[in-house]
Amino acid sequence: MLLSVSDLTVAYAGVEAVSGVSFSVGEGELVSIIGANGAGKTSILNAVMGLIPSSGGRIEFDGTNVTRLPSHLRARRRMRIVPERARVFAHLTVRENLLVGAYGLRKAIDLQKKLEWLYGFFPVLEERSAQLARTLSGGEQQQLSIARALISDPKLLLVDEISMGLMPKLVETVFEALRDLNREHGITILLVEQNALASLRISNRGYVLEAGRIALEGNADALVRDAGVREAYLGI
C-alpha cells in the first residue's frame, strides 16, 4: 500500500472530529472518501498531509512511518495536496505559484516541459501567468491549485473538494482530468468529495464517512449500487 492510515484520530480543542479511522490507498489507485458536511473529510486529508496534528493513530506513506514528520518533509517525499478552497499564494503571480509547487525539484523534473503540459490542461493559467493569483476568479484559483500540486509529479495526490466553486462543465473536465492522471499517468489519488456520484464514477474504491467514522467501504461501483448510499449521498 502506498498510503495506509490506521486508527487515525483528530481532535480540535479536545473534541474529536475523526475517531479511529483506518483506510488505505494502493499504488495506482484512485480512492474516494465521501461524506456529508462536517463528517471529517478535510480533517483526514490535512492530517495525512501533516497540516494539522493527529491525536492518535499511524500514517504510513511509501513504506515509512510519517506520523510525526512535518508537512514539508512529507511533501519532499512527493505527497501533495490540493487543499480545500485552493489556498493559492495571493501575492505571487500565477507562474510563481507554479514554481513554488516545484520547489526543490529543479533537478528531478523538466520544469519547462511540465509547465507546457499544465498549460495544455489549463490554458487560462498561461494567459494569466504574469497576473497576481489573488486577481484570479475562484474557479481559476482552483485550477491553479491543481496545477501547482501536479507540477511536482506527485506519487500521491490528495484532493479536497475539487468541484467546489467550479462551473458544471469544468467539474466534468476536472474529474476527467483526474481520471486521466490516474489511468494514463499513473498518479495515485485520494479524493475527498461531497459530489459523491461524480467522484465514485472515476474511483476504484470508496469509503463512506459518517460523523468521523467509516460507515461503509467497498468497490466504487458497489457503493454506487448500494441502496443506502444512493439515498443518503447520491440523491437517486
Binding site: L51, S71, A75, R80, P83, F89, A90, G104
Partner: peptide, 24 residues
C-alpha cells in the same frame, strides 16, 4: 531567487507553503 520565492510563499500562506516542501 528561489530562496526569495520560498520566503514570499511563506509570507503569503505558511501552511500551504509547507505543504509544497518549503520548511517555514
Amino acid at each position: 531567487s528561489w530562496a526569495g520565492l520560498g520566503c514570499r510563499a511563506i509570507a503569503s500562506d505558511e501552511t500551504a507553503a509547507s505543504s509544497m516542501g518549503i520548511s517555514p
